[in-house]
């Protein structure tokens, strides 16, 4: 499977993250999966005219393009001209290159939330008119349009995340190369379901604190970060706590809130990221699929039943009260 990888309005972090894929031989793993990187901005030898010659061969139909991977938002400004990113050496806006190449690719893959929805680059007043390949935040459209389908029949595949997890990219490309990825594998926002059907909350190391609503109050506390510190793990679609990052990590394991970086529009939550917005003391963002009345009832019940150990440790940065070691066998 021939893969061309281009970067525009982003930070390059999804590529840097990809190189952290859990393998002892990154290039060997790609090759064994049948993935041929025609060109990648950080990994390939070719520069300058060698690269534009490659684009010409693709556009002329000489070289088949099986997957076009785009990292970074598409910068339409100023005033629709695309001049916020003129691709070096070509005099052409990057959005033109992306549109033309997408038209001859079998699959188009958005790598990261910028390419999927606009992401951080579309934050604030969105000074560069940034958008995703097929979305403008949660609204279908984007650069390629709501109706776009690549030659292989699929809409843009949104491997969202800021950055995206290396495993999400490898699994998507591997499945595409094996011909085993189809429309049923995408969720309603075009994200691969193997990670988007999970919630960050699943497997979080703070689950016991969540159960008892024993909450962290300040940075480095061990408690659940939903009530005060802005955690959206119960709403964010991703498997970050069952497929950890960089060995044994995740945002919540690192002591900071999940900001739901796989969701469209995550960059503008409408409140400061580090504090949970509340209405009458109840967090506005309730756990996915949970009616408010139930949440309120369960929260007050579990708060009243919190063991001392959980209550104390929740506001400490290390275990102060250890679990009691029982003298009999566990039942």
């Amino acid at each position: 499977m021939n893969v061309l990888w281009l970067q525009s309005g982003g930070c390059g972090g999804c590529s840097m993250s990809l190189l952290c894929a859990d393998t002892t031989d990154f290039h060997g793993e790609l090759r064994d999966a049948g993935i041929e990187l025609l060109w990648h901005p950080s990994l390939s030898l070719e520069s300058g005219a060698e690269v534009t010659a490659l684009f010409d061969r693709i556009l002329d139909g000489e070289l088949p393009l099986d997957a076009l991977c785009i990292e970074g938002a598409l910068l339409r400004g100023p005033h629709g001209s695309g001049r916020f990113h003129i691709m070096a050496g070509t005099g052409q806006p990057m959005i033109h290159w992306v549109s033309r190449l997408a038209a001859c690719a079998r699959h188009v893959v958005a790598i990261g939330s910028c390419a999927a929805w606009g992401g951080v680059t579309a934050g604030g007043s969105n000074p560069t008119e940034a958008c995703g390949l097929q979305y403008d935040d949660e609204v279908r459209g984007g650069l390629l349009g709501a109706e776009f389908r690549a030659a292989g029949g699929l809409p843009v595949i949104n491997v969202a995340g800021c950055p995206t997890h290396p495993g999400w990219v490898i699994d998507t490309l591997t499945a595409l190369a094996a011909g085993s990825f189809n429309e049923a594998d995408l969720d309603t926002l075009g994200r691969p379901r193997f990670f988007a059907d999970q919630l960050v909350h699943h497997g979080c190391s703070r689950n016991e604190y969540y159960e008892f609503k024993a909450s962290a109050e300040k940075p480095s506390d061990l408690g659940c970060m939903m009530e005060h510190l802005g955690c959206k793990g119960t709403q964010a679609h991703a498997d970050c706590n069952t497929r950890p990052w960089n060995g044994e990590g995740s945002c919540t394991r690192g002591g900071y809130a999940c900001i739901s970086c796989t969701e469209p529009g995550f960059q503008e939550p409408g409140h400061p990221f580090h504090a949970t917005p509340k209405l009458a003391g109840i967090p506005i963002g309730l756990p996915t699929d949970m009616p408010k009345a139930w949440f309120v009832a369960l929260a007050s019940l579990s708060k009243s039943a919190t063991p001392k150990r959980v209550k104390v440790n929740a506001v400490s940065d290390h275990v102060v009260v250890p679990p009691v070691a029982k003298r009999t066998r566990l039942k």
Binding site: G13, M16, P244, W245, N246, G249, S250, C251, R253, A257
Partner: peptide, 17 residues
């Protein structure tokens, strides 16, 4: 090497630790 940051900082890149 970057697994150091899984432990020390949750993840890399883009930690808030």
């Amino acid at each position: 090497w970057f697994t150091l940051l899984g432990t020390l900082a949750g993840k890399w890149p883009h930690t808030q630790s």
